[in-house]
Amino acid sequence: MIYVQILLVSLGCLFFIVGTLGLLRFDDAYSRIHAITKADNLGLGLLVLGILPSALSVPQGLKLILIWVLVLAASATASYLIAHYIKQHQLSKLPHGARPDTTADGQDAEPDPTNERGPQ
């Protein structure tokens, strides 16, 4: 059992690493959202699944699952909101092209508040 758990947790960590890498490396906001949701959903799901057999009691296990469900709901909504905002303001490619110095910043999905001068 312990090996299965180790495998699951390692896989979950792998998804987190891949998701973070995608967040840092992808060009436009949509791809970044795509990458980060992989980390949230699959990575956290695998982690929870891996830890679940070690839960001391049934309520504790249920809480772990509840955490995952809540994160799923929250991240889905947040992704939708970010994507919606980008679509409304047509900002998808902007942060990358406009300011090459901050491409490594994963949070460029939102418009840059201080330095931004508009889409073009």
Binding site: Q107, D112, T114, N115
Partner: peptide, 9 residues
């Protein structure tokens, strides 16, 4: 960080 929004994040 140069960018204020980034600093807040």
């Amino acid at each position: 960080s140069k960018d204020l929004f980034r600093a807040v994040v």
